[in-house]
Simulated scan of single mutants.
Amino acid sequence: MNFSVYWQHADAVSKTLYFILLAMSIMTWTIFILRLMGTRQLKQQAYAQLSQALGKLKAKFSPLNFEQRKAVAEQALLRQISAEKSQAEKGVAVLGTIASLAPFVGLFGTVWGIFHALVAVGKSGQAGLAQVATPVGEALIMTGLGLAVAIPAVLAYNICTRVNRGLAHELQDQAHSLLIDTMLQQDSSTAQVNTKATSENLVGGQA
Rank of each mutant, 00 (worst) to 15 (best):
Y47T: 01
Y18V: 14
T97N: 09
G125Y: 07
Q45P: 03
P135E: 04
K196F: 09
G122C: 10
L184S: 11
I33H: 01
S199K: 12
Q41Y: 02
K56E: 14
R165Q: 14
A99P: 05
A48P: 04
L118V: 13
S4V: 13
E84T: 04
S4N: 10
L202A: 13
A71D: 15
A153C: 09
L179S: 04
N2S: 08
Q172G: 09
I20E: 01
G146E: 01
K90L: 15
F32D: 05
Q87G: 06
N158P: 07
G122V: 04
A83N: 12
C160Y: 06
Y157F: 15
L57Q: 04
L36F: 07
H116T: 06
T97I: 15
G166C: 08
N164G: 10
G125R: 06
M1L: 12
A148Q: 03
A133M: 13
Q8T: 14
S177F: 07
Y47K: 00
R69H: 04
Q131K: 01
M1Y: 10
E170D: 13
D173G: 07
E74C: 11
T195C: 09
Q126V: 15
L36G: 08
L57K: 05
V193D: 12
Q45T: 03
I31S: 01
R162H: 15
F61A: 08
Y6K: 06
M27G: 03
F32R: 00
A130D: 12
A207V: 13
T134I: 15
K58P: 01
T161Q: 11
L118N: 07
G91S: 13
R35K: 15
G205F: 13
T39W: 00
G146N: 02
Q52H: 11
A148V: 06
A207P: 04
R40P: 00
E170Y: 03
K60M: 09
K60V: 09
T134F: 04
N194C: 09
Q80V: 07
F66H: 06
Y18G: 09
Q206F: 12
L50R: 01
L184R: 08
T161R: 09
S124M: 11
I151P: 02
Q87I: 07
F108D: 06
L34V: 05
V5M: 12
A197R: 14
I20G: 03
A12F: 07
L145H: 00
A48Y: 05
S25C: 11
L36A: 08
D187Q: 11
F19S: 11
G96M: 08
I20K: 01
D187V: 11
Y47N: 02
A48Q: 10
T28P: 05
Q87E: 12
V119H: 09
R79I: 05
F32V: 03
I20A: 07
T182I: 01
V105I: 15
